[in-house]
Amino acid sequence: MKFLCVDCDRQMAFEERELPGDGTLAAVFRCPDCDRMTAMLTNPMETQLVSSLGVQVGGRTVPAANFEGIRSEVATGSEEAFVESPPSGPVRWNTDAVERLSHVPSFVRGMVKKIYNEYAKERGIEEMTPDIMDRARSDLGLEGM
């Protein structure tokens, strides 16, 4: 799927993605020449079909986490499936961020943590805080997760 700005004859670039949590998806594309924007809205069935493939409309902004598709799609995952992994990598998590992460179900916690770490690493952020987590959720369209 591609979006073409007819006036400029230019392919529109992916701008942002939003998952409002009702199964739908909004992806915004912008023309690099005239800045015209258009939004692609998918219904829950279309959204599910795409996410089942483990792909993201507009392309991936952070690499896939381990078992990302399984953790995102399985409804009966065990809370005891994974051992909490020790902190690793260049991103420090402050106490408030760790506390907030602890509220994420353990079946998906490792995946969510990796997504936040990748987000921070790509932006040169050294410390994870609840504010950074909020920003990542917004920028990556994680509202539905």
Partner: peptide, 23 residues
């Protein structure tokens, strides 16, 4: 990965799992 005795169930926002179950 599953809860003890739990069947593998997928999150289906729409009751049309037959469309994407194989995927």
């Amino acid at each position: 990965l599953l809860d003890h005795d739990a069947a593998l169930r997928w999150k289906d926002p729409v009751d049309a799992g037959f469309v994407w179950r194989g995927v």
